[in-house]
């Protein structure tokens, strides 16, 4: 029997080496998972809702959204415009919840997702009373406000023209208490970065206990 064979226990160096490679593999896989994520700021517990990333119409507050939604995906399946996107496990506890990326594919307010939600996460609501967010015009990017061109893409795209968005001296102005936050204006805006964005200001209201 060779002497080397008897020494089956790994030396300290070998152990450290294997530990190092294990952590390396762990790091690489974490990087891969993070890098593959659709938006890089996905996190385990923080809500994925943010600028131009909105919940479907009638959604309850983010405070109880993760608890209430049972991730059945019926809203995404029924959406005729395919704008309801389903998150995956890289978004942590928000995996499987619906999200609308309005700059890519806005909500057309057909309200079909609201009809099929079995848990009341998307509550039945009128089109005009939907509050997915509030469109905000960035006057530093908007060519009309900069008086470089006469663009009114957002005004033309709005489903509540002259109610939720108005032209004042040919410049678009959002009417705060009428805007439903569907994101059609964001989708229509030709600027990059977008000169109009939907901010989900209603998504984080505290739940009232009755």
């Amino acid at each position: 029997m060779k002497e080397g064979r008897l020494n089956l226990k790994p030396s300290e160096e070998e152990k450290a080496e294997s530990r190092r490679s294990f952590f390396k593999a762990l790091g690489i896989s974490a990087l891969l998972l993070g890098g593959l994520s659709r938006k890089s700021d996905a996190s385990l517990f923080k809500s994925p809702v943010g600028r131009n990333r909105l919940r479907p119409p009638g959604a309850v507050s983010e405070e109880i959204f993760a608890g209430k939604c049972i991730r059945c995906g019926r809203c995404a399946e029924v959406c005729p415009y395919r704008c309801v996107y389903m998150l995956d496990i890289r978004w942590g506890v928000w995996a499987g919840t619906p999200l609308i990326f309005v700059d890519e594919n806005p909500c057309y307010l057909c309200m079909k997702c609201v009809e099929v939600c079995p848990t009341g996460t998307l509550m039945k609501i009128k089109q005009t009373e939907t509050r997915m967010g509030l469109a905000v015009i960035n006057k530093r990017y908007c060519v009309t406000w900069l008086e470089q061109a006469l663009c009114r893409s957002c005004y033309n795209a709005c489903p509540f023209k002259d109610v939720a968005i108005k032209l004042e001296r040919l410049k678009p102005v959002v009417v705060d208490d009428k805007c439903v936050g569907c994101g059609l204006c964001v989708h229509a805006c030709p600027m990059n970065p977008k000169a109009i964005n939907v901010e989900p200001i209603y998504s984080f209201t505290r739940v009232k206990w009755k």
Partner: peptide, 17 residues
């Protein structure tokens, strides 16, 4: 659902309509 917009059945065995 996806190719024919036939929405009679939606979901799977978490919730099916």
């Amino acid at each position: 659902n996806y190719y024919f917009h036939f929405n009679f059945i939606q979901g799977w065995y978490q919730s099916i309509g």
